[in-house]
Amino acid sequence: MSALPDPVWPVLVLALIQVVDGILCLRPVAFIARCFEDVHFPRRYWWVMAPLKFAAAAGLIAGIWIPYLGVITCLALVLYFLLAISGHLRARDFGRNLFLNATGMLVICILTPLASFVW
C-alpha cells in the first residue's frame, strides 16, 4: 500500500473547499463574520483564518506527491474542526454553523484519507 493518496480526487475536492473557504475568510463574508461573532472568536484574530485555509489546501495538494503530508494535513483539519465544534457548543450555537458547516467539514476531513481504503 502506498503512502500517497489513491484516488486523488477526494484530496483535490477537500483542497478546493479549503481554497474557497480561505477566499471567503479574506474579508469575511457576512455569514462567516456572523459565525465568528456567534462563537465569540476575537476579531483581532480573524485575519489568521484565510492563511490557515490556504496552508491546508497547499498541504493537501503537496500531499499528492509527498508521502503522508496529505494525511497529516487531514488530521490537522480534523483537529481544527473539532475545536470549531467545541467553540460552537461552548457558545451554545446549535444552528447551521454547528450541524451543517463544522460537523459536515469534520466528516469530509475524516473521510478524505479513508477514501484510499474504500476505493
Rank of each mutant, 00 (worst) to 15 (best):
D6T: 11
P7E: 08
V8N: 09
V11H: 10
V11C: 10
L12S: 06
A15I: 00
I17D: 02
Q18N: 14
V19L: 07
V20H: 06
V20L: 15
V20S: 09
R27F: 12
A33S: 06
A33F: 00
R34P: 00
R34A: 15
C35R: 14
F36E: 04
F36I: 05
P42G: 02
R44C: 06
Y45D: 08
W46E: 11
M49E: 11
A50S: 14
K53P: 06
F54R: 05
A55K: 05
A58I: 13
L60F: 02
L60S: 05
A62Y: 04
W65I: 03
I66Q: 08
I66F: 01
Y68E: 14
V71S: 12
V71M: 05
I72M: 10
C74D: 07
A76E: 04
Y80A: 13
F81I: 04
L82S: 09
A84T: 12
S86C: 12
S86A: 15
G87E: 06
G87S: 12
H88C: 13
H88E: 07
L89S: 01
L89A: 13
R90M: 01
G95C: 04
N97H: 08
L98I: 01
L98S: 00
F99S: 11
L100D: 08
T103R: 03
G104C: 04
I108M: 14
C109L: 04
I110G: 07
L111G: 15
L111Q: 03
S116D: 15
F117S: 12
